[in-house]
Nucleic acid binder design. Structure first.
Length: 500
RNA sequence: GGCCCCUUCGUCUAGCGGCCUAGGAUGCCACCCUUUCAAGGUGGAGACACGGGUUCGAGUCCCGUAGGGGCUACCA
């Protein structure tokens, strides 16, 4: 067992730069990151771009942007450098070639000259590669090489017996060697495969705990044998469960837009979370609750708190359906507990983008009555956009918004007309004062509070749903509130003419 | 097909042989609060996949079955 007092824990996230950063990868990264932080160790980002065909330009930027947004700090990586770089595999080709060569010299690997056509044939025949070059002598191999025949380097997997390894999450796992193939270590283009590259790098980068998705479990024995052949001390392994689609069917995919909740598509890519304006700390909290739990029946916690108790050994081995509905709830929790200033700075760009000029003092006034009503920051527009639009442009809502339950246009007009002088003569225009006055007014007019308050709400906000009416009027001020009520009266009059 | 991993409320999870007539969260429903919508409060419906063992005792250990996921590339 690794003792953090003596050995610095070093974990890494090693994605392939194949496009936008996926939330599943971020969750795997999160677990490695938390573990490193828990033990005061280092977290490394390494780019595994050994498949040139699949490399997508700009991927590294997207990955780094996602980490920065989530506030997952990276100790060593392509951008921050470090003592064990370079951190991009395509820049370390010589290293892999050296070790592949040594493996061949030591008899643990061999050159294989099988052509793609031959391989295809073997695969079609049922079995995989039949190890036809495993016993080819050095002399013959040299001859083929001299003829310019392309070759790969394959690992000599033991033909019989078993290979067992320990996984921090699932315990001991055992595999029959005969089941494994002689995997390719070095491709004919001189690039290594994942199997060779990650081991060479994890060793040279002093990685102590390899955290990776469960899909690597079947090749775990192969890797164990390669480590052994190289003669390097084994790190610990944790094969992490993966995220499944929300319906539990299949691995969470990038573009399954059919999985939507309440008509909205489910965010899967890092930039989608950013664009949807989720709070990064909510996303981190959300991710850490899948496959791991804080304990004490607590669902809401900071990463700082999580760092104090995270352990890879506590990770649930089962895959999880992507519980995206919980994210909205968590996001709402974080919005509610966010400081007014922070919320203001978060909301401001959203309002500006929607072309509402932002008066910061007004925004700060609105936040207390708005905060609990936001699940997502974007909700500010439909809920409270009217506060920030130019008041001079305010349009009275149509009659059907103004008229409350069990009322008609005439009664509504009468109600609003009657309310105007009461509000106008109020000594104190505070919400409380308005509330008391309007309650008395409703009673005197034999109306329900809801009918009076609702009509006023619609008149003043133009909406059926809004922050509390009187608080809203207090912020708008008496003059503006009364002006809007009069505008509503005009709208009602037009309605009466049209239908009369 | 072969091999590997997994299996508690719809979903995320607690549970590491007796504390479980299975706890929390989310979602859903109801009620309370209430001027709308939220938030908040209270309550409700809702799970140990199945079958065998082991044990005085099993959600917890073992085996099998079923279901799910993955691997089986000169992709990672």
């Amino acid at each position: 067992m690794t003792d953090s007092r003596f050995t610095s824990v070093r974990t890494r996230y090693a994605p392939s730069p194949t496009g936008p950063q996926h939330i599943g990868g971020l969750r795997s990264a999160l677990f490695g990151w938390l573990y490193a932080r828990r033990h005061g160790g280092q977290f490394i980002l390494r780019i595994e771009d050994t498949d040139q065909k699949r490399s997508v330009p700009g991927s590294i930027d997207m990955i780094e942007k996602a980490f920065a947004w989530l506030n997952m700090d990276i100790d060593e990586g392509p951008r921050q450098g470090g003592a064990y770089g370079p951190y991009i595999q395509s820049e370390r080709l010589e290293l892999y070639q050296t070790w592949a060569k040594r493996l061949v010299e030591a008899g643990h690997a061999y050159k294989c000259f099988a052509t793609p056509a031959e391989l295809k044939e073997m695969r079609a025949a049922g079995r995989g590669y039949d190890r036809r070059y495993r016993e080819t002598g050095e002399a013959q191999a040299a001859e083929l090489e001299a003829q310019g025949k392309p070759y790969v380097i394959r690992f000599k997997m033991p033909l019989e017996g078993k290979t067992a390894g320990d996984d921090m999450i699932r315990g001991r796992v055992e595999f029959a060697n005969a089941q494994l193939q002689d995997a390719v270590l070095l491709k004919s283009d001189g690039f290594p495969t994942y199997h060779l590259a990650h081991i060479v790098d994890d060793h040279h980068m002093r990685i102590t705990h390899i955290t990776r998705a469960v899909e690597w479990l079947p090749s775990f024995p192969l890797h164990l044998r390669i480590w052994q052949a190289l003669g390097w001390p084994l790190p610990q392994f944790a094969h992490l469960p993966v995220l499944l689609n929300p319906n539990g069917k299949g691995k969470l995919s990038k573009r399954k837009q059919q999985f939507s909740q309440a008509g909205q598509s489910v965010p899967v890519l890092a930039h989608e979370f950013i664009e949807a304006r989720y709070l990064p700390e909510a996303v981190m909290n959300f991710l850490s609750n899948i496959g791991w739990n804080f304990g004490d029946n607590r669902e809401v916690f900071s990463m700082h708190e999580a760092m104090e108790r995270f352990d890879l050994r506590d990770v649930n081995p089962a895959n999880s359906a992507y519980p995206i509905a919980k994210l909205d709830w968590l996001n709402g929790q974080y919005i509610q507990s966010a400081g007014a200033k922070r919320l203001a700075s978060l909301l401001k760009p959203i309002l500006l983008e929607a072309r509402y000029p932002v008066d910061e003092r007004l925004l700060l006034q609105v936040i207390p009555i708005l905060r609990a009503r936001l699940k997502k920051l974007d909700d500010v527009i439909p809920m409270a956009g009217f506060f920030f639009a130019d008041w001079a442009d305010f349009q009275a809502p149509p009659a059907d918004i103004l008229i409350q339950r069990k009322m008609d246009s005439q009664q509504t007009a009468k109600l609003l007309e009657g309310a105007i002088p009461v509000l106008a003569e109020l000594e104190d225009f505070s919400a409380g004062s308005q509330h008391r006055a309007m309650s008395r007014f409703a009673k005197a007019a034999s109306l329900k509070n809801g009918q009076v308050f609702g009509s006023l709400r619609a008149a003043v906000t133009g909406q059926r749903v809004s922050p509390p009416t009187f608080e809203t009027m207090e912020i708008l001020g008496r003059d503006e509130s009364l002006r809007r009520i009069r505008l509503a009266l005009e709208s009602l009059a037009e309605h009466a003419t049209e239908s009369g």
